[in-house]
Design a protein around this nucleic acid. Structure first.
Length: 291
DNA sequence: CGCCAGGCTAGCG
DNA sequence: CGCTAGCATGGC
C-alpha cells in the first residue's frame, strides 16, 4: 500500500471533500463509518472506492488530503476530485444574482467530480424519481453483488461492475436489488456498452451533439445525459435540468423557461455564465437541496 | 393515507 | 411534433 498527502493550500480555491462527495454528483464512494449523507463524518473516517483495478481511500484533515492506495493514486485522485480545476477563476465567471452568490458562499470548496463514464451512466439512469441516498444504495448493492473486490490494508473495496456483468445479471436480478422500473434500462444500456457502444466517445463531440448521442442509451433522456456530461465527460457547461433547478428557474429566472429542454438549457447556461454554467448549477442545486 | 424524489418511455392526438 | 399515463419504492 502507498500513502501520501496533498496540501489543500496547493489547490486553487481549496476543497471541501465532504461537500464534493456527498452532494449527489458521485455514487462510487462509501464512507468507512458507513454513514454517508447522515451528519458530518468523524475526523478519522475515510472515503473509499476502487477504479481501474486500484483501491483508494482519502480523507481531509489538518490542511491536507490524506490518501492510501494500492499504488500511487494521486493522478487518479486529481481526475476523480477535479483537483486541477481553478475554483476562483471558474466561480468568477458566475453572475452576481443573490441566489447564485449565496450558493457559492454556502458551498465553499465544492468541486465537480470526474467519475468513470459507465458507472456514471448507470448511476444517473437509476436517479430517475429517486432521492440521493437511495441512488447511492442501488449503486452500492450493484458493486457488492457484481463488482470485483479489491483489498487495501484490512479493507475490501468493490469496483463498479463491468458492463458485461450487469448485462448478464439481467432485469430480474437488478429488480431484486431494488432498482424498480429502472432495472430494464440498466440491463439494456449495460448490454449496449458491453457490445461496443462506448459512452466516452461523446467526449469528441460538441456539447449539444454529445448530449444527443448519450440519449441513444436506454433510460437516458436529456437530464441524465447532462449529468453524465458534467460529472464524467468534462463538459463543465452542462446544466442538468432537474426538479430543483426547474423550481429555481420558475422562481428566480422565469425568463429562462423556454418550454423545451433544449431552449431552456441554452437560456439557463447563458444565465449561469456560459463556459462553467454546470459548476454554477451544482452549487445552486446543493444550496437549494439543503434548505 | 397522499405526496414526492437529480425522469424516461411508449403511445396518443 | 408536443403531451401524458405509467412506472417502483421508501420516507415523511
Amino acid at each position: 500500500m502507498e500513502t501520501g498527502a496533498i496540501p489543500v493550500a496547493e489547490l486553487p480555491g481549496g476543497i471541501n471533500l465532504t461537500e464534493t462527495l456527498e452532494s449527489g454528483q458521485t455514487y462510487i464512494w462509501t464512507r468507512s463509518d458507513g454513514d454517508m449523507y447522515n451528519e458530518t463524518p468523524p475526523a478519522d473516517s475515510w472515503y473509499e472506492t476502487a477504479v481501474d483495478g486500484e483501491a483508494l481511500r482519502v480523507r481531509q484533515r489538518d490542511g491536507v488530503l490524506e490518501w492510501q492506495g494500492t499504488t500511487d493514486v494521486v493522478p487518479l485522485l486529481r481526475q476523480l476530485l477535479g483537483l486541477t480545476d481553478n475554483l476562483p477563476a471558474i466561480l468568477d465567471t458566475a453572475p452576481g444574482e443573490p441566489v447564485i452568490q449565496d450558493a457559492i458562499e454556502h458551498g465553499s470548496g465544492l468541486r465537480i467530480v470526474g467519475d468513470p463514464p459507465f458507472s456514471t451512466l448507470v448511476a444517473f439512469i437509476c436517479s430517475a424519481q429517486m432521492r440521493v441516498p437511495r441512488i447511492h444504495g442501488m449503486v452500492t448493492r450493484m458493486k457488492r453483488t457484481y463488482g470485483t473486490p479489491i483489498t487495501i490494508g484490512d479493507r475490501t473495496v468493490y469496483q463498479f461492475p463491468e458492463p458485461a456483468a450487469l448485462a448478464a445479471a439481467g432485469e430480474d436480478e437488478l429488480r431484486a436489488l431494488q432498482l424498480g422500473y429502472r432495472a430494464p434500462y440498466v440491463a439494456e444500456t449495460a448490454a449496449m456498452v458491453a457490445n461496443g457502444t462506448d459512452p466516452a466517445t461523446a467526449r469528441d463531440l460538441s456539447y449539444e451533439a454529445a448530449r444527443r448521442q448519450l440519449t441513444e442509451f436506454v433510460g437516458v433522456g436529456n437530464k441524465v445525459a447532462d449529468c453524465v456530461l458534467l460529472f464524467s465527460l468534462g463538459f463543465l457547461e452542462a446544466v442538468p435540468l432537474d426538479t430543483w433547478i426547474r423550481t429555481a428557474i420558475e422562481e428566480e429566472f422565469p425568463a429562462c423557461d423556454k418550454g423545451s429542454y433544449a431552449a431552456t438549457s441554452r437560456a439557463i447556461r447563458e444565465q449561469f455564465g456560459g463556459e462553467y454554467a454546470g459548476y454554477v448549477q451544482t452549487y445552486v442545486f446543493h444550496y437549494l437541496r439543503q434548505q
